[in-house]
């Protein structure tokens, strides 16, 4: 008769992480979701069920802003996927070239913007692109393309794309580093074996390296997705909480901020704000689930 001993040490060792994570992540998350189910009516907090979400999705005033923000968010994400990640992969491929000189210098230079604060990046780019003090009009003038200059951040058609590209500039170092690390981990023997079979240069990249770094690309995509749908800082630093011009740069983060904390004469509404935060959480959750169950499980992995 041997009783199973309760293995207390597991609980003890897990406790610190579980407690800290619960206190700073899980509890606030669920409390926010709970807050979304209430509303303030005549100074009293009243339970209203899903009414806030119904307002958010179906009341014309709210729904228009919500879908506008969501659409802008998707565009923000698409620009990152189409520009940031391919450039990141290309840079990593170039950097991992064995005969490239000053590779460490380039690597640091490209990575440095990533560690800058959003506020600095937003402010610096606002100055660079400023039609009054900026160097962008001067540079374009010097190459005879002054006519191409426009006050991009102030034009409804260009502002969001401009901000997305600024964000790409800032964060292109991250996919570059991750892919670079993945490329370095590919054993020489495989490439040499390919060489013997006549696969060299560009085709070595497409046929050998790219399939091997696909899982890393997948991870980068999901990081980009989560980062973009949580984005707020850059837009707020560059365009303020009203995300002008005419809400063309309004993304879910700024919409949530404006609603939750209020803006100028608009009083904050924590309950509607929480509803938006809840919607953001759901969107990110769905996106991550699609990736995890739809893509990652089907991805072919190679044992190196």
């Amino acid at each position: 008769m041997q009783t199973r001993r309760i293995r207390w040490h597991i609980a003890v060792f897990l406790a610190p992480a579980v407690i800290v994570y619960t206190a700073v992540m899980i509890f606030p998350l669920f409390n926010t979701l709970r807050l979304a189910l209430f509303s303030r009516i005549d100074q009293e907090r009243v339970f209203v069920g899903l009414q806030n979400f119904r307002t958010l999705f179906f009341d014309p005033i709210w729904a228009e802003q919500f879908w506008n923000a969501l659409g802008n968010n998707f565009w923000f994400f698409i620009i990152h996927m189409l520009v940031q990640n391919p450039i990141g992969i290309a840079l990593a491929a170039l950097l991992s070239h064995p005969r490239l000189r000053f590779a460490a210098l380039y690597r640091s230079a490209i990575f440095i913007p990533t560690i800058l604060s959003f506020v600095i990046v937003g402010f610096a780019w606002k100055l660079i692109l400023s039609p009054i003090w900026g160097i962008a009009p001067g540079i374009l003038d010097a190459v005879g393309l002054k006519s191409l200059f426009a006050p991009w951040l102030g034009k409804e058609d260009y502002a969001l794309t401009t901000l997305a590209l600024i964000s790409v500039w800032q964060f292109v170092g991250i996919p570059m580093m991750l892919i670079y690390a993945a490329l370095l981990s590919i054993p020489e023997e495989i490439l040499e074996a390919g060489e013997i079979d006549g696969i060299v240069g560009a085709s070595a990249f497409w046929k050998i390296k790219l399939p091997l770094i696909l899982p890393s690309i997948g991870i980068i995509s999901i990081l980009t997705f989560v980062g973009n749908f949580n984005a707020f800082d850059l837009i707020y630093a560059a365009q303020g909480a009203l995300a002008g011009p005419n809400f063309s740069t309004d993304i879910l983060g700024t919409f949530m901020y404006r609603t939750f904390f209020g803006f100028q004469l608009q009083l904050g509404d924590p309950h509607m704000g929480s509803a938006i935060a809840g919607a953001m959480f759901a969107i990110i959750l769905i996106g991550v689930c699609i990736y995890l169950f739809g893509i990652q499980t089907r991805m072919r992995r190679y044992q190196l």
Binding site: K126, L129, P131, I132, A150, P151, W152, G154
Partner: peptide
Amino acid sequence: GDGFEAQT
């Protein structure tokens, strides 16, 4: 001024 759309 020119570019007043982006003038803060």
